[in-house]
């Protein structure tokens, strides 16, 4: 897979007693948006820091454009990165932040103006970055990532702090980048943010990859789809369906959850048996369901059981 834009293989890294990365392996191809998801502490940010040469792995390798990141001469021309969006020196303006980055890559000053317009930050560009909202900082971070018009983009949690309008904008923006052949790696701890934009999803937990597949494959892997049935006589309907070989469970709200057969087949079984029903709905598993199923055992930080007084 030498043509992969990002290649991570067998990364291991330990912080004191914590095994942050435990054999992390995946790759990202050009022209795709790859979601990089997992609960907090799963190793997403550490992987990205190793990819960008910020942290050093104990084992394995991480390549961007087929090279170690540190070997790139003007790295932002090849790889755009959004890390630590909140990390700005407060007294410097957004424009000047982009200006020093442009200088470091020998990019023309005009390019600063272009990326400011690109992310829609022109009204705030000459203000102190210390006064920026989190959403504005994210936009500035994306502007910095786009400065060298790179072929690979690595964005760590770009949706954090964005307003709905901003989220819609990023989603469209990432799709358009992929459409123009760029490779995009987007990390998020919320699967829902990636539904509809990610071609490929890498689900990680406890420092390793739990699943690496297309969205469709993942949904299919979540098991067969279920059918929701509403009937005035739920017990009778369940009995009929079970005789036909389906799994059927009556819920306490009087509905029946049917598994193992399609909605079409449910209608075909119930109608001849004379069981009345008011609704038959095929329920497709969401990416969110798959994610929770996958990461159920890998969550590091779980909220304690809520106790109501």
């Amino acid at each position: 897979m030498n043509d992969a834009s990002i290649e991570v293989s067998g990364l291991r890294k330990r912080f004191g007693p914590t095994q942050a990365l435990d054999g992390m392996t995946f790759s990202v191809a050009a022209g795709t948006v790859t979601g990089f998801v997992g609960p907090n502490g799963a190793g997403k940010s550490t992987t990205i820091r190793v990819l960008l040469g910020l942290d050093y792995q104990d084992e394995g390798h991480a390549l961007v454009c087929g090279q170690r990141y540190a070997a790139l001469k003007y790295p932002l021309r090849r790889v755009g990165a959004l890390v630590e969006a909140a990390a700005l020196q407060p007294s410097r303006t957004g424009r000047n932040h982009l200006l020093w980055l442009a200088r470091s890559q020998r990019l023309p000053t005009d390019r600063v103006k272009e990326v400011i317009d690109l992310v829609g930050l022109d009204s705030a560009a000459r203000r102190r970055a210390g006064g920026y909202s989190l959403g504005m900082r994210q936009r500035l971070g994306i502007a910095a990532a786009m400065l060298g018009d790179p072929e690979v983009l690595i964005l760590d949690e770009p949706f954090n702090g964005m307003d709905p309008e901003g989220i819609i904008w990023i989603r469209g923006f990432l799709r358009s980048l992929a459409a123009r052949g760029r490779a995009v790696l987007v990390s998020s701890h919320l699967m829902g943010e990636l539904q509809g934009i990610a071609d490929q999803v890498v689900v990680v937990g406890r420092g390793r990859v739990l699943a690496d597949a297309t969205v469709d494959e993942l949904v299919a892997r979540a098991g067969s789809d279920r059918v929701l049935l509403r009937s005035p006589t739920p017990s009778e309907a369940a009995a009929v369906l079970q005789r036909a070989g389906a799994r059927a469970t009556v819920t306490d709200r009087g509905t029946v959850i049917v598994g193992g057969i399609t909605a079409q087949r449910v209608v075909e079984v119930l109608s001849p048996a004379g069981v009345a029903f008011s609704e038959v709905t095929a329920q497709r598993a969401s990416l969110e369901d798959v994610y929770l199923q996958l990461t159920g055992g890998a969550t590091q930080y779980r909220a304690g059981t809520q106790v109501q007084p």
């Binding site: 960008l52 990141y69 790295p75 890390v83 990390a87």
Partner: peptide
Amino acid sequence: RITLTAMP
């Protein structure tokens, strides 16, 4: 981190 990303 931004600095070292731009200048590894």
